[in-house]
Computed example of a mutant assay.
Amino acid sequence: MRQLILLRHAHAEPPAPDQSDAERPLTEGGQREATAAAAWLAAHDVQPDVVLCSPARRTRETAISIVDVLGAADALRFEPRIYEATPATLIDLLDEHANADCVLLVGHNPGLETLVALLTDGTSDSGRGMPPGSIAWLHVDADSALEPGAANLRHFWWP
């Protein structure tokens, strides 16, 4: 059984004048959300083989909070393809890590919520939303391809 853990970044500041979207930091509340997500993952004994993270500041800050608590800093990889990714791009990226038992991907909406709907329900229009800091923990049979309806939702959590 493969585990795919999809984590949306925690709440971020709105863009300041002359600041790019990619450079938006977490709010104080977002920092608390990231800490809560890390605690939840640790309480569930998550041990990712690889942590894939968008290079956007808010995802980096969220991921660092997580890997510090999980002791998984060596597993952290910044992946530019996650920023503004479609579900197809995210599936391609996850397929590149098909040999990992547990992949934690830290990214953005709408890509993450659409990916969860696609992998669990087989459709891309039934997304239920992923609030900032939320986690969708999916199971996929080890020999199964990542395709519509191939995953089961094990947990859905948000701060």
Rank of each mutant, 00 (worst) to 15 (best):
D143H: 14
N99Q: 12
S124G: 15
W137R: 12
A98T: 03
L105T: 02
A88Y: 04
G122F: 09
C102I: 03
D121A: 11
V106L: 01
G133T: 01
D141M: 11
C102P: 00
D95A: 14
P110Q: 01
P131V: 02
L115E: 11
G127T: 07
C102H: 00
A117W: 08
L112C: 07
T123N: 11
H139T: 14
G129V: 08
S126T: 12
S134P: 01
G107Q: 06
A136P: 01
A100E: 05
S124Y: 10
W137L: 07
I135M: 04
G133N: 09
G111P: 00
L119I: 09
L118K: 04
D125T: 12
H108V: 00
T89S: 09
V106H: 00
L93G: 07
D141G: 14
H139S: 14
L94Q: 09
G129R: 09
D121G: 10
A136L: 09
V116L: 10
D143K: 12
A98P: 05
L119F: 03
S134Y: 00
V103Y: 04
L115K: 05
A117C: 14
V106A: 03
G107P: 03
S126I: 05
D92N: 09
A88C: 09
I135P: 02
I91F: 02
M130P: 04
D92E: 15
E96D: 15
A100N: 08
M130Q: 10
S134G: 04
V140N: 07
P132V: 01
W137A: 10
L119C: 06
A136T: 11
N109S: 05
W137Q: 12
L90H: 03
M130L: 13
L138I: 07
D95K: 15
C102A: 04
L112Q: 03
A117I: 03
I91M: 05
D141H: 13
H97V: 06
H97N: 08
N109C: 00
T120C: 11
R128S: 06
R128M: 02
T120P: 07
S124D: 15
A142D: 13
A98Y: 04
P110M: 02
L119M: 03
N109D: 08
S124F: 13
D125Q: 07
T123S: 14
L119S: 02
N109F: 01
T123A: 14
L90G: 08
A142M: 09
A136R: 10
E96W: 01
P131C: 08
